[in-house]
Design a protein around this nucleic acid. Structure first.
Length: 450
DNA sequence: AAGTGTTTAAAGTTCT
DNA sequence: AGAACTTTAAACACTT
């Protein structure tokens, strides 16, 4: 699954509309810089779902399911640990002291990695004392906390994890520890948990703050530093078509979209030019659709700092590499707490009248489906129909009586690992952008639900 | 004394 | 150019 190189527009005969669609999507002319979406600072955190369960926080990267997906495609056994997938995808050891011995080679074929010129997986940070990790300190801290599998960790644990996993810091000037402390204190994403009086030891504990989820819901934090929304007319038309009622139980993307002949041709041309066969791979079908949305937003800007090299993010972001292109500066550190997929999909499904064939719809046992824009394995879907939190969530969000508080709880409620398998990841930018670009009636309808 | 935590400041990078 | 953000450095206070 690579999106490298030119799509060869000059060699294909395509309609102007298709060409516009492709060009606006950035499919054809994405520079290495574009692809080099960084996981700046805590932007990658938005890929996390911080789940609160009776005071216990669990940080699970949604990239897990992405990694799983990739590894399943590659025939590689998916990591058992939620961390594993995430860290593996970015070339990180799975757990302190247990470095991943081998990288997933195919991951390096992702454009974001290739374009950057090196694949982080090629760098063995654990043994290479010369190369400073591309990760920001905040990122390292989050990694350490996440890797600890505890809700809170001590500063020394963070130090230890970093030095255990990054040889560079074992030999570097200890001033980096000052930077770590500085980050912990300054970054709002980190909460200090004072040590109990009867608890021996120095200093307190640190954890990742799940509270920022609320700020997101209240709209206090909006994406920043994003280019103005520019909607390609062709895409706009497609999106409008999405909003039309669709036939129940779609089994492929065209059913899902309920496109007319004209758009069907447009879609086929787009697929042809992009080399995506949506019929043969529902996941790619979803990717294309997501990509279009991403493109609609206008994806030209570089990512700040670029030291994430886009590796993890490209994998974390939904099913689409293109979706990894844009991240907010502020939101990135704040938005980690939600199942934005559920939110987005629920909102969209509802407003786009796609819930007619919702999660409780019978699903053919022998097919993988695109349901609510989510790639759902039919077997899982069948099982999850009655039990999955995700599906329950989806239904709940559809509930007209849903109030804001319930909605918040819903979003923060624990999800099973299986949930993430069924979820694609959508960043909050897309959520907000879609709220704008998909026309005002969507907003009004969402508001009516809240 | 050593570790921990907070705060301030400056410099650099990236984006609008 | 200015804003936003990260990194680095330093000073200081507090705790063990």
């Amino acid at each position: 699954m690579t999106y490298q190189g030119s799509l060869g527009l000059e060699e294909k005969v395509v309609s102007p509309a298709t060409k516009d669609l492709i060009e606006s999507s950035g499919f054809n002319n994405r520079s290495s810089d574009n692809m080099d979406d960084s996981l700046t600072s805590l932007h990658w955190l938005q890929e996390f779902s911080i789940l609160s369960d009776s005071g216990r926080q669990q940080v699970i990267s949604t990239s897990q399911h992405q990694s799983k997906h990739f590894e399943q495609q590659l025939g590689v056994e998916a990591p058992a640990s939620p961390l594993a997938g995430d860290f593996a995808s970015i070339g990180m050891p799975l757990t302190p002291g247990k470095p991943r011995a081998t990288a997933v080679p195919a991951l390096c074929t992702l454009p974001s990695l290739v374009a950057h010129g090196h694949c982080p997986d090629e760098v063995d940070y654990k043994t290479n004392p010369h190369i400073k990790p591309l990760y920001s300190y905040a990122t390292l801290i989050c990694m350490a906390i996440q890797a600890s599998k505890k809700s809170k960790v001590t500063l020394s644990c963070i130090y230890k994890w970093i030095t255990d996993n990054f040889c560079y810091f074992r030999h570097a000037d200890p001033n980096w520890q000052n930077s770590i402390r500085h980050n912990l204190s300054l970054n709002k994403c980190f909460i200090k948990v004072p040590r109990q009086k009867d608890e021996p030891g120095k200093g307190g504990f640190w954890k990742i703050d799940p509270e920022y989820a609320e700020h997101l819901l209240t709209g206090a934090y909006k994406k920043q530093r994003m280019p103005p929304v520019q909607i390609n007319p062709a895409l706009k038309n497609q999106l409008r078509m999405i909003s039309q009622p669709v036939i129940p139980a779609p089994t492929d993307v065209t059913d899902f979209l309920h496109v007319g002949p004209e758009s069907q041709q447009l879609l086929e041309e787009f697929e042809e030019v992009t080399g995506l066969d949506q019929n043969s791979d529902p996941h790619l079908a979803e990717t294309t659709l997501s990509d279009c949305w991403s493109a609609v937003k206008g994806s030209k800007g570089k990512q700040p700092y670029g030291h994430w090299a886009g590796s993890a993010q490209a994998l974390c972001r939904s099913s689409s590499p293109l979706l990894a292109m844009e991240e907010p500066k502020v939101l990135g550190s704040l938005m980690g707490n939600f199942d934005w997929d559920a939110l987005l999909n629920s909102a969209l499904n509802d407003d786009l009248s796609l819930n007619e064939c919702g999660p409780v719809s019978p699903i053919p046992q022998d097919q993988n489906l695109i349901v609510h824009g989510i790639h759902v394995n039919s077997l899982e879907a069948s099982v999850n129909t009655t039990e999955s939190n995700m599906l329950i969530k989806t239904q709940k969000v559809h509930d007209v009586d849903l109030d804001k508080e319930t909605f918040l709880e819903l979003l923060q409620s624990p999800c099973t690992e299986e949930d993430f398998v069924c979820m694609s990841t959508v960043n909050i930018n897309q959520l907000f952008d879609l709220g704008v670009s998909l026309s005002d009636d969507i907003d009004s309808k969402i508001e009516s639900h809240l």
